[in-house]
């Protein structure tokens, strides 16, 4: 527990020292400014998309950048010859980004004067969405070594993530889209902001996200071992 706490503290310090908070502050201000100019009748709908893109942006893209920076410093491999466990490393990253995503999500709705239907559901949704996308970001980040690779593959990931919105906009309708975590994320935020919901659906969406969080966590652990741990101690000359 003490190790996890020290890791979280260090992750926050690392993100701060590498300028992530300044970038995020800039993005948050832009979101708030956009919402200021949106007419009241569309404000809640736009807020759903903005708040949804917020943990996606943080979780997915920031975790990629953070791990690339750590890979650049080669510190990841050193961590795993100390008493740190893979679980603690992953959970620490998720906690540091959940904290940021939830805080910024709250700031956006408060400064934009959005009247939330359920603050509890809103916070729970943000935590779950942020956890899922951070884990998804790690699956990509552990495999790649350059920013270019990250950008290329993140576009592919992003397109797949966004695919279920074809159903929301009535382009292609399929129940299969509801099996993926995108629409449950969208609807959970929508219910918490707009308040039109059915309890059964809420439980389905929460269960869906929990399922994907567990699956992605297992995926992350396997790939982390394969692409990070097994390569510990290898240098540029490819020692074996």
């Amino acid at each position: 527990m003490r190790n996890l706490l020290n890791l979280v503290k260090n992750d926050i310090k690392f993100q701060y020292k590498n300028g992530f908070y300044y970038i995020y502050l800039f993005i948050a201000i832009i979101y708030i400014l956009i919402l200021c100019f949106i007419p009241t009748e569309y404000k809640k709908d736009i807020t759903i998309f903005i708040v949804l893109s917020d943990p996606v942006m943080l979780g997915f893209f920031f975790i990629g950048a953070i791990i690339l920076f750590e890979k650049g410093d080669k510190v990841i491999e050193q961590l795993f010859v100390t008493p740190i466990k893979i679980n603690q490393y992953i959970i620490s990253k998720v906690i540091s980004l959940i904290f940021l995503a939830t805080s910024v999500g709250m700031i956006i709705v408060i400064t934009s004067n959005i009247d939330l239907f359920s603050i509890i559901l809103f916070v729970i949704s943000l935590i779950m969405i942020s956890t899922f996308f951070t884990l998804l970001g790690i699956t990509l980040a552990v495999r790649i070594d350059t920013v270019n690779e990250f950008i290329l593959f993140s576009i592919i990931y992003y397109l797949l993530i966004m695919l279920p919105f074809l159903d929301v906009f009535n382009v292609v309708n399929s129940y299969l889209f509801y099996l993926l975590p995108t629409l449950p994320s969208y609807f959970l935020l929508s219910y918490s902001i707009k308040g039109t919901f059915n309890n059964l659906y809420i439980w389905y969406h929460i269960a869906n996200l929990l399922f994907w969080i567990v699956i992605t966590y297992i995926w992350v652990k396997n790939w982390f071992y394969k692409y990070i741990i097994l390569k510990i101690g290898d240098n540029n000359e490819k020692n074996i």
Binding site: F14, K17, G72, D73, K74, V75, E77, Q78, I232, G233, N235, N236, N239
Partner: peptide, 8 residues
Amino acid sequence: FETPNLFN
């Protein structure tokens, strides 16, 4: 390790 692993 052979190459330094440090937070730069």
